[in-house]
């Protein structure tokens, strides 16, 4: 033993958005620990904008990253990231965790639109995203996973997305892929060789009364109404660029 214990990083970022009483949105909490750094950027109208900077260097094996976002009643928040997040193998080894908690109050709005999550060869990441949306909340959430950098085999990536809206779970899905994932993940029922997979969740109170109409967008993407005030676009594509194009196109149909 060399007396040195290599452990992963534990880091948390917290954002709270609150209506400022003048038609805008304040950010009374905007904290991050390396490598998570949320930065406020120029706002537009009543919406506050935040960019997550520096997530790019992680998570590494053994890391445990947490992002907590709370959007309070009447506030509007837009969160993006400066670059793609790359899951890498780390010295500490073992699984890395990335947990995102998004709480959107009744009458609040959140756009959660980070860049892609890329699973590099040898990495092992478990990412969870849990959304709690109040009865009148509005949400646009995009999640994109890319399996391996160019010409590289993917690491192991397991991703669970749970969305609760107006008190019921409208979406609960987990995708496991890469080396060590349960069998068949790259076969004809799951990914069939596609290397980019993504989802777009849109929660709007009016979808409860008037759900979107289900529509296949070719054989690789579909827009569907969920069992509740929400819609989902699921897509697979050969690469990140084409996936983004599919999701962007689908979003314009919803706006």
């Amino acid at each position: 033993m060399d007396g040195v214990t290599v452990t992963g990083v534990r880091a948390q970022a917290r954002i709270v958005a609150r209506a400022d009483g003048r038609g805008g949105t304040a950010l009374p909490v905007l904290d991050g620990e390396v490598p998570l750094a949320p930065r406020r950027t120029r706002s537009s109208g009543s919406e506050a904008k935040v960019v997550l900077v520096g997530a790019m260097s992680g998570p590494l094996g053994g890391d445990r990253l947490t992002v907590d976002v709370r959007v309070e009643e009447g506030a509007r928040l837009h969160v993006g990231s400066a670059a793609a997040t790359i899951a890498l193998p780390g010295q500490a080894g073992g699984e890395a965790r990335y947990d995102v908690r998004l709480d959107v109050a009744d009458g609040a709005e959140l756009h959660w639109l980070p860049e892609q999550l890329i699973s590099a060869e040898g990495s092992d990441l478990y990412v969870t995203t849990r959304v709690e949306a109040g009865a009148g909340a509005r949400l646009v959430l995009r999640e994109e996973q890319v399996l391996g950098r160019v010409g590289e085999r993917p690491g192991r990536l397991t991703s669970r997305l749970t969305v609760r809206a107006a008190g019921r779970t409208v979406l609960d899905q987990e995708l496991a892929c890469g080396l060590g994932a349960p069998g068949g993940w790259d076969g004809p029922a799951v990914l069939a060789g596609y290397r980019a997979v993504g989802q777009l969740v849109v929660v709007r109170p009016e979808f409860g009364e008037r759900p979107v109409e289900a529509r296949a967008l070719g054989e690789c993407a579909a827009l569907v109404p969920l069992a509740g005030p929400a819609a989902l676009v699921s897509a697979v594509a050969p690469d990140a660029l084409r996936l983004r194009r599919l999701l962007d196109e689908a979003l314009t149909r919803l706006v």
Partner: peptide, 9 residues
């Protein structure tokens, strides 16, 4: 909650 994107789509 395991899912197969191509099954759904």
């Amino acid at each position: 909650a395991a899912s197969g994107p191509l099954l759904e789509v």
